[in-house]
Structures are given as C-alpha cells and as structure tokens.
C-alpha cells in the first residue's frame, strides 16, 4: 500500500503545464493590464534608452566607404528599398507596378545633386507617401544604403572611358 502511494506522483506528472506555459510575459505577449493590451511598453517621456547615444553618434558620423560597406548596403537596399525603388534605383519596383505611387528615379539631376544628408533624412523620416524606416534600418545600415545608392547613380551615368576594360564586354 505504501509502495503504491509512492508511485502516485508518477501518475500525476504532466497534469499541469506550468513548465511549458510559465507565469511570465513573452515577447509581444498580450497584457490586458495596459490600455493598448500589449506587454511591449513604449519608453516613458524623457528616458534615454540604452544604446541611444551610440545610435545618435552613428547617425552623425558617416562611416568610411569600403567594399564591405557597399556590400552591406547592396544587401540592405535589396531588402528594404528595392521593392519600390527597383534593383537599379529607377523607381520601377514590384510595389509601384502593383499600383503604389511610383517613386522618383535616383538618376534624376535633382537626386544626383542631393547631398547624402537628404537620403539619410528620407530613410529616417520618410518622404511623401514613403514611410520612415528608422525602426527597421540601423543608422550604420542607412549610411551603407546611401553609399550603395551613390554606386547605383555612378553605374547609370558612368563614362566608358572610366572603365576601359568594360568595352570588350559591350555588344
């Protein structure tokens, strides 16, 4: 009888799911306590978030342009910009083809002459119908994208004399 009692806990295991569903809020968990219903809280007014100063510094200082930066820019451009601006920056992306207002080409005289700070401002805060990408593109990546946009601008207006070895590849 006593032996059977000892076995009883074995039978009762896995009756509750407290290990699987612990009493804590996971990322983006619902929390009815707050009016917006989410456990993800906005920062209180006046708070300086951890990393905010580095963030501001990275925005203020453009990094040196290196092949690695351009590659990073190409990758980020492909993710966040190409859907609208197109892979060559002419504004012929898939989303404008589906009816979104077509963005201007980077190869217009206005945008070729625009300073890097203009592109930084547009990526950060948006422009016209374009939303800002501050939440998705880190400051260092914004500079990388701008460097890549410059490379695109160069590519669309390059002189053949600048790359003599390209001549034999042309038809």
């Amino acid at each position: 009888m006593r032996a059977a009692l000892l076995l009883l806990p074995l039978v009762l295991t896995a009756c509750k799911q407290e290990m699987a569903q612990q009493r804590k809020l996971g990322t983006h968990a619902a929390a009815p306590f707050w009016p917006d219903g989410t456990s993800a809280r906005p920062l209180p007014v006046g708070v300086v978030a951890r990393g905010a100063l580095e963030h501001d510094r990275a925005l203020a200082e453009p990094p040196p342009v290196t092949p690695a930066l351009l590659q990073r820019g190409q990758e980020r451009y492909g993710i966040y910009c190409a859907p609208c601006h197109g892979l060559v920056g002419d504004g012929d992306g898939m989303i404008p083809r589906r009816g979104f207002p077509r963005p201007p080409s980077y190869h217009t005289p206005r945008l070729r002459a625009a300073p890097a700070s203009h592109f930084l401002e547009v990526i950060t805060h948006g422009y016209g119908v374009m939303y800002g990408y501050a939440a998705r593109v880190e400051p260092a990546d914004r500079w990388a994208i701008i460097a890549y946009i410059r490379a695109l601008q160069l590519s669309q207006g390059a002189e053949l004399a600048a790359v003599p070895e390209a001549r034999e590849k042309l038809p």
Binding site: M19, A20, Q22, G37, A40
Partner: peptide
C-alpha cells in the same frame, strides 16, 4: 487606435 493586431502564434515552443 494604436492597438497591435492580435495575431495567433503559429510556431510556439514551450517556455522551458
């Protein structure tokens, strides 16, 4: 309304 959409989780792992 500034209230997030309540998507239902598709891939859920136990908390442990």
């Amino acid at each position: 309304e500034g209230r997030p959409i309540r998507w239902r989780r598709v891939n859920e792992l136990p908390d442990y």
